[in-house]
Design a protein around this nucleic acid. Structure first.
Lengths: 341, 1289
DNA sequence: TTATTGTCTACCGACAATATCAATACTTACGAC
DNA sequence: CTTGTAAGTATTGATATAAGTAATAGACAATAC
């Protein structure tokens, strides 16, 4: 039984959007799904389990549900106005479309759902291919969305959280600015640790993005090669706010120690425009000497961190791990000022 | 204070004459400056402890921190001046005369600076003259400069002094000297005496020559301090004494011989008990300075005259075994007479040691390293400590050539000897940078700079929240500052030796006179140095030096090859520059290599306690101006200004007007209280310390930080998070412990260095007038341990009241301080056995003292009491123990006095009572009452809480209530207490929220009047900080309708200290240095104010300014009465026998303070100070005034052809006020006729009834600033206090 | 010009974000008249 | 000699950085509309 797809003007009646923005044009959603070609990954969508995080007004969810008729589709949202709205949407409908009213921000919500209450139990899949029975949808266009997304990426790297079940595809709405950061290529202005991490642990594509005059700020050839669906600002609610984009995140197969990689990229990218041979010194006592001995390629040493590819960072990380005098990467924090009574 | 510019005709006259007489001296006929208008005349007659005079100064029309009549002008210009000054100073000292001259030109171009320009020129001239060989060249130069280059500049008497000095130096014949000097004296601006008063220019031989050889001046024209040096041929023989003073001294010296001791004083062995795990580089340095001074023959004679066996321990560097316990000696002297003469001898001896202490510490450190290094070379026994010193010595030697080379290059750039053409672009850039920092880098001896850099970095280990390192920003600035400090001390010394260079100081008596003269000289010199290096320059040279150290400093390291699992040895830089993130912001970090940390023995190095800032061996220099007082070679300012030029400007103004003498008086009393280390306490503490175990508040030694094992990678993110939090907690605890241990270490080390010494704490004020000792780490403001470690140098016989007070004191220290005095006395008497046991077996007895609230001080008091009680008549015991009298919630006491709350005043003991009141318990009682009432009405929460309310729960909140704690903040505090009772976090927080409401209500109920005052103060602060001043630069108004608010809350304390709240927006900017850019505030930027902080800070700051005044008044009075006095804000200390006297003084002074209606006076002051300021109001659009204003705006808008903005309104009003205050009658009339939006509103009278809040129907108008009505005062009369014995107890 | 969104939350002593790049302001060089 | 333009350089301003938000509630400032 199909879920009711409400038009924008109805959904606009929801009081609070909590600073999130949602694409609310069914046509565009359909276009996006056309482009995504999900059946290629999920040959049998009747076995598909979908976890839908921050579904908000639920238009996206409804369209998805109607189109793919998954085995189970859990909407996780705890924001009162949306919960009220979604409850109306899910209760009258078939029982594969369920609302789970806990806060998707809390890790605990997931353990409750999956391990404690066992209301949604995905299967475990090997790392050889993208998980074919589990899909995550999410909207992270809110205030802390970017931070949460970065943590999710770290989870991809650590293979914990939802990613303990395998290489789980995620379709995530984020702010355009976040998308730009994530998709920045080596040498780009915006090249930063998160894009390196995204490169390393995932294959991420820009599926759709709002039409703005900033499109050119996406990294080299992102628009050309990803050919995102473009939609106008009118299709988005709330009417004001920052532009948004949809990312398709495909975790890749890897076996990398995140902590060391994290340390190396973090520190090198502080000096993003400093030639490596100098930037290495900031990795620890005697870093320059060590790395310039280990890495012979003079030309490489003249490159600067923002120009490096993911695999080059991996190479440096490996060297770092083998450094006898490497610093303690777990001491790399600031001891916040403690107030005494 | 303006000097009239020269007239044209005089110019011609002088030119004509010049041509005739050029042969003698060109400068002779430079125009004579016309007299200058002297400072503001004093205030009116009636008795004034400072307020009247001071406030009239700081509000006089001639004064304004943004005003052109004072040195501080517009922000930009004053910054320019300061930068140029410091650069000028630097260039002069580095000998870059050409550059210096061009800086002079820039200074000359600054209009606001003109009146002061001659001072700068004089500095230049003085240096320039040194390069010359003929006095005529100097003449020529001066003539040319003043006639041509700086025509608006006029010479002064100092200029003449410089000429005279050089005339005497350069002229070959006596005739030539005479001729020149004669002319120069004739040119005097304010007389011969004025010329001669420049003791920093003229040397002693100069004076001598002027008096004796040339007979140009008579003896009594000389400055008093110099006179004795010149008299009767002292210079020649140094032995003949003629003055009254010297014969007195002579008598004293003789009397020394007669002093006999009935008991041998054992020389003590300061190093016998090496403190365990204490790294002593730094303090060894200090000790060497203290001990390692060899006595002069005279001193030796003197000391031996006391029958002490000192001939064998002329202490020096290698022989650091023994020293003298001056305190023990002093204590055992029998007669008053003996003690007096002993003290005077000691004081004199200490003059020299103080000098050494402030000046020689860096050298001493270096020598220590070298010494250990050489010792190791010859012997090879290497303690860890010595190994470190050897390492440091190596670094020093590696670093030195680099520094030297850099200095050379800087010099080359400055002298333009480095050719630009052949350089790479990079080198060019470097040279450009050198041009900026070069002048500063070349001032201090490279060796010293190396030592300072090394010491600073080691000292900063583990600061700023970095576990094995420090923040780069802090490091570079610290090094820069240390260099600057060194430079200042050196400069002072150099100047001093220049002036006194040919003085023969053979005899002891003569030396005394020289000392006296020197002191005068130094005061002048320090007052004169108003220059500080710009923060930027500090950071730059700091970074240069640090990067050089990073480059050379290496340590041996061991590691395991992760591939082969083999142990590998290697070498790595000891310091490494990197970054860390904190909340997404980068932070520059200098990390110290772990292997070096281990060598530091897990403790922060006690290396470089700013040797300049230790307790003083002699009485601090008395405060007599805003920047003169305290240490002898180190400049400190009267108030610790928070980078606020405004504060300084106000302070300067009242200081120059001599309006804050009462502040100085009080402060000087604090500084003149001599202290010594309590040896017995020191012994107990060092024993505890050496065990390395935790004891009371000293944490145990913790070798290194061990983090918990990492959870598996695929564990839930929440597990990872827990792990990270746990680690942070561990790290926090670790560094907390380490810094606590380190702090204790500092204290013990300093105490050890000062064992047996007599020392003083020079004091300073924070911006509200509260006093703090200048020396960090070890002072009486410190924790229980610090306080337990020190005691008064002077002893006083207890007498019966003294004994009683000592007992009360002990009881207080145990926290038993809420009972009547008799009960407290009984408390002590009931524990006589415990006291004896604690005193005699502090560590191996019952340890009763450890149960005290303040255990260390309790122990000290036990010991004191025990000694007293051992005597047949305890009243005869001579006690050194300070006894404290604390105000019961001092802030509330002042509030109660201001608000006239009878109930409140009773609760804080302003009203006589037979037992002391305890506010906290009382509030707790009130809260319980409320809860019970609520519970009776069926409130479950109340029922749950009602029997959980103890004094402790509400104490912090009641206390912080005075500081304006918010509802949420108080909830946190209460939650901290409640969460120990309830396990459930959420629940306890809910309860806390609930409880907080009741606590707030109770406090408000109890101190109704006080709260009204608090609110009133807050409201005033808010209005002031959101007012618009008309006298600022127009450019701040340029952004249309949102002018920046620029006025901070300023008031004058009863003592006359002007207080400027420094809260402004953060004006920090990035500054590039060698290592990284650092984020520092520009001290001259005048930023928009932070209204929130102004408002929140004013009530507590005002109260603090009152309690500070009370303290200083009491100090001065106690000083007058001959008491030894110390204070910790609201805790006043004196000898046990003097407590009663002190208490009377405290009450007297409190009454004196509050007899005036301070709030009313404050309002008057505000009304005067902020008159003509404007405020933004919202009034009813439909009111008559509003309509008029709208009309006017419309009209003006049409006229302008654009919207009439707020800025326009302000500008217009400014015009009007200018016209009104004009001296020209027609202009005045024009102003009176002018109609502005403000005049319309002002004309409408009271418009408070028209004010609307956020209604749509309101109009924003500018109105004259008005302050709310003062709340009604309660009926409490402060004079009742006179008989309240528990006021302070 | 009004709604909403974001910030901050107790005083003082006290102690601190930085790299990079685009855009603007400012200077210099050089050429032409 | 003046002044124009271009090019180059110094200064200023904006932006990203990391990556749990523990928890409250009300005032006030800033920003967007």
């Amino acid at each position: 039984m199909a879920i009711r797809v409400q038009p924008l003007r109805d959904l606009a009646k929801i009081q609070h959007y909590y600073g999130f923005r949602y694409l609310l044009n069914p046509g565009v959603h359909e276009k996006i799904f056309d482009k995504l070609d999900l059946p290629q990954t999920y040959q049998d969508t009747s076995k598909l389990k979908v976890l839908d995080l921050y579904p908000g007004p639920g238009q996206h969810s409804a369209i998805f549900h109607n189109r793919f008729k998954p085995l189970q589709h859990v909407l996780m949202d705890a924001r009162p106005d949306f919960v009220k709205h979604l409850r109306g949407l899910s209760s009258t409908q078939n029982d594969s479309f369920q609302l789970y009213g806990k806060d998707p921000y809390e890790w605990q919500s997931y353990t409750d759902l999956i391990d404690v209450e066992k209301k949604f139990v995905p299967s475990k899949r090997s790392l050889d291919s993208i998980h074919d029975e589990f899909l995550v949808l999410a909207n992270l266009t809110g205030m802390v969305g970017e931070g949460l997304f970065m943590q999710w990426l770290a989870c991809v790297g650590n293979r914990n959280w939802l990613h303990r079940f395998g290489r789980v595809k995620m379709l995530v709405w984020v702010l355009e600015s976040t998308a730009m950061k994530i998709l920045a290529r080596p040498g780009d202005q915006l090249r930063s640790k998160c894009s390196v991490v995204a490169d390393t642990f995932t294959d991420t594509k820009l599926v759709a993005t709002m039409e703005t005059k900033n499109l050119h700020k996406f990294g080299q050839g992102v628009i050309d090669s990803h050919k995102p669906v473009l939609f106008p600002e009118n299709d988005v609610w709330m009417p004001s706010g920052k532009p948004i984009s949809l990312l398709e995140v495909n975790p890749s197969k890897h076996n990398i120690d995140l902590d060391n990689f994290d340390y190396v990229t973090k520190h090198l990218l502080i000096l993003r425009s400093t030639p490596l041979c100098e930037a290495f010194e900031s990795l620890g006592h005697g870093g320059r000497d060590y790395f310039t001995t280990v890495i012979k390629d003079k030309k490489f040493l003249r490159k600067c961190p923002k120009e490096l590819t993911s695999s080059e960072f991996l190479m440096i990380t490996e060297a770092f791990v083998n450094w006898p005098f490497k610093p303690d990467i777990y001491m790399d924090f600031i001891d916040v000022f403690q107030d005494n009574d | 204070m303006l000097r009239f510019s020269r007239s044209c005709s005089r110019m011609l006259v002088s030119k004509r004459l010049t041509s005739q007489l050029r042969c003698v001296s060109q400068t002779a006929f430079l125009r004579k400056p016309s007299g200058n208008i002297d400072g503001l005349s004093g205030a009116t007659g009636r008795e004034d402890i400072g307020f009247l005079k001071s406030s009239s100064v700081s509000m006089s029309p001639h004064f304004g921190p943004f005003d052109h009549s004072h040195a501080v002008v517009s922000a930009a210009e004053s910054r320019d001046i300061m930068n140029l000054w410091s650069l000028l100073e630097a260039c002069l000292h580095s000998g870059y005369m050409e550059r210096a001259f061009s800086i002079l030109k820039s200074l000359y171009a600054l209009k606001s600076h003109q009146a002061y320009f001659i001072d700068d020129y004089n500095k230049f001239l003085m240096k320039y003259a040194e390069t010359l060989h003929d006095i005529k060249d100097l003449d020529k130069k001066l003539f040319h400069d003043i006639q041509e280059t700086f025509p608006a500049c006029e010479y002064n008497d100092k200029t003449l002094a410089i000429l005279i000095h050089h005339a005497l130096k350069l002229s070959s014949s006596a005739e030539a000297k005479l001729e020149h000097c004669k002319i120069y004296f004739k040119m005097a601006v304010s007389g011969q005496r004025s010329i001669l008063s420049n003791v920093d220019v003229l040397t002693v031989p100069n004076y001598k020559s002027l008096v004796h050889d040339l007979k140009l001046v008579s003896l009594n024209e000389l400055p008093a301090a110099v006179r004795p040096l010149i008299e009767s041929g002292n210079i020649v023989t140094g032995e003949m004494l003629s003055s009254q003073q010297s014969s007195e001294i002579n008598a004293k010296a003789l009397s020394h011989g007669e002093v006999a001791l009935d008991r041998n004083i054992e020389p003590l062995d300061k190093d016998a008990k090496e403190l365990l795990a204490v790294d002593t580089i730094g303090m060894k340095v200090v000790r060497h300075t203290l001990l390692g001074l060899s006595f002069t023959e005279d001193q030796k004679k003197q000391i031996t005259s006391f029958n002490f066996d000192t001939s064998s321990n002329l202490l020096n560097f290698d022989q650091e075994k023994e020293s003298i316990d001056f305190f023990e000696m002093f204590r055992n002297l029998k007669s008053e007479e003996e003690r007096r003469s002993f003290e005077s001898a000691l004081d004199e001896f200490n003059q020299d040691r103080q000098h050494q202490l402030e000046n020689r510490a860096t050298d001493a450190a270096k020598e220590r390293w070298r010494h250990d290094f050489e010792e190791a070379k010859s012997r090879g026994d290497l303690s860890i400590q010595k190994k470190l010193n050897i390492k440091l010595w190596e670094w020093f030697n590696l670093m030195l050539p680099l520094v030297k080379e850099e200095v050379r290059r800087c010099a080359a750039v400055a002298n333009k000897t480095a050719q630009d053409t052949s350089l790479s672009p990079q080198e060019k850039k470097q040279n450009k940078a050198r041009q900026e920092y070069g002048p500063y880098l070349t001032l201090v001896d490279p060796e010293k700079m190396c030592v300072i850099t090394i010491l600073e970095l080691l000292k900063l280990n583990s600061t700023g929240g970095i576990i094995e390192g420090m923040r780069t920003a802090r490091a570079v600035i610290s090094v820069g500052k240390a260099i600057e400090m060194e430079f200042r001390a050196e400069m002072l010394l150099k100047n001093e030796s220049h002036v006194f260079k040919d003085v023969n100081k053979k005899s002891h008596e003569f030396k005394l006179m020289v000392q006296r003269a020197r002191a005068t000289f130094r005061s002048i010199k320090i007052e004169e140095s108003k220059v500080l290096w710009p923060q930027e320059a500090r950071a730059k040279i700091g970074s240069i030096l640090i990067s050089m150290l990073i480059h050379v400093a290496k340590v041996k390291v061991e590691g395991v090859d992760p591939v082969t699992n083999e142990k590998i040895k290697g070498e790595a830089p000891a310091f490494s520059h990197g970054y860390q993130y904190h909340n997404g912001s980068k932070l520059g970090v200098l990390k110290i290599h772990r292997s070096l940390i281990h060598q530091l023995n897990g403790e922060r190095l006690v290396a470089a306690v700013q040797p300049q800032l230790l307790p003083m061996l002699v009485k601090p220099r008395a405060w007599n101006s805003w920047n003169s007082g305290g240490y002898y070679y180190t400049q400190s300012t009267l108030i610790r200004s928070k980078d606020s030029p405004e504060q300084v400007a106000y302070l300067k103004a009242v200081s120059d007007a001599g309006a804050i003498d009462n502040v100085y008086r009080g402060l000087n009393v604090l500084g003149e209280t001599p202290w010594t280390v309590n040896r017995k306490m020191f012994n107990v503490m060092s024993q505890v310390w050496n065990s390395g175990k935790p004891f009371l508040d000293i944490p145990g030694i913790q070798e290194k930080l061990t983090l918990t094992p990492q959870p598996p990678r695929d564990a839930d993110p929440s597990v990872h998070r827990e792990w990270k939090l746990k680690n942070k907690e561990l790290a926090n605890e670790f560094s907390g412990n380490r810094s606590a241990r380190c702090d204790a270490n500092y204290k013990l080390e300093i105490a050890r260095a000062f064992l047996g010494e007599k020392f003083y704490f020079p004091h300073n004020l924070d911006f509200r007038g509260r006093a703090y000792p200048l020396s960090p780490h070890f002072n009486h403001l410190g924790n229980d341990m610090s306080r337990g470690l020190m005691t008064f140098w002077h002893g006083k016989r207890l007498g019966s009241t003294g004994l009683r007070w000592l007992k009360v004191h002990l009881s207080n220290l145990f926290g038993f301080d809420k009972a009547p005095l008799e009960d407290r006395v009984r408390f002590a008497e009931d524990h006589i056995d415990d006291i004896r046991d604690s005193a005699e077996h502090p560590l191996d007895g019952k340890c009763w003292w450890k149960e005290a609230d303040k255990p260390w001080q309790a122990l000290a008091t036990c010991m004191e009491l025990n000694e007293a009680l051992k005597m047949s008549n305890p009243d005869d015991f001579v006690s050194h123990q300070p006894v404290h009298q604390d105000g019961t919630c001092n802030g509330l006491q002042h509030y109660a006095a201001l608000g006239g709350d009878i109930e409140g005043a009773t609760q804080v003991n302003l009203v006589p009572s037979d037992r002391p009141q305890d506010v906290y318990s009382h509030v707790a009682k009130l809260v319980v009452a409320r809860l019970e009432k609520a519970a009776a009405n069926g409130d479950e929460t109340a029922a749950l809480l009602k029997d959980k309310i103890k004094r402790k729960v509400v104490k912090q909140t009641v206390m912080t209530n005075v500081y304006g704690v918010t509802y949420i903040g108080a909830t946190h505090q209460i939650d901290k207490q409640l969460s120990t009772l309830f396990n459930d976090h959420k629940r306890s927080y809910e309860l806390s929220k609930y409880l907080t409401k009741h606590v707030f209500a109770s406090v408000r109920e109890l101190f109704e009047g006080a709260h009204l005052i608090q609110d009133w103060l807050g409201e005033c602060a808010k209005r002031i900080s959101k007012s618009i001043r008309l006298d600022v630069d127009e450019k701040t108004l340029k952004n249309g309708n949102k002018p920046d608010f620029m006025s901070s809350v300023i008031w004058t304390t009863p003592l006359g200290l002007p207080i400027v709240q420094p809260y402004r927006e953060n004006g920090k900017k990035q500054v590039a240095t060698n290592l990284q850019t650092v984020f520092i505030s520009d001290p001259f930027a005048i930023n928009p104010i932070n209204a929130r902080r102004q408002k929140a800070g004013f009530p507590p700051n005002f109260i603090h300014s009152l309690d500070a005044s009370h303290m200083l008044l009491s100090a001065a009075k106690c000083g007058e009465k001959g008491l030894d006095f110390a204070a910790v804000h609201d805790s006043y200390w004196t000898h046990a026998c003097d407590v009663d006297t002190m208490n009377v003084v405290l009450r007297e002074q409190f009454i004196k303070l509050h007899e005036v209606d301070l709030i009313e006076r404050l309002k008057d002051e505000f009304d005067e100070r902020y008159k003509n300021y404007l405020q933004i109001l919202k009034i009813d659009k439909k009111s008559e005034v509003a309509m008029k204003v709208t009309d006017l705006k419309k009209k003006l808008s049409q006229k302008l052809g654009r919207p009439f903005t707020l800025a326009d309104e302000i500008y217009m009003e400014k015009k009007r006020i200018q016209l009104l205050s004009s001296e020209d009658a027609s202009e005045q009339a024009e102003g009176a006729n002018m109609v502005t939006t403000v005049s319309l509103v002002a004309g409408a009278g009271d418009i408070s009834n028209l004010e609307k809040t956020s209604d749509a129907s309101c109009l924003v108008v500018l109105a004259p600033l008005t302050l709310p009505q003062i709340p009604p005062k309660g009926d409490f009369d402060v004079r009742e206090l006179e008989k309240s014995k528990y006021f302070f107890s």
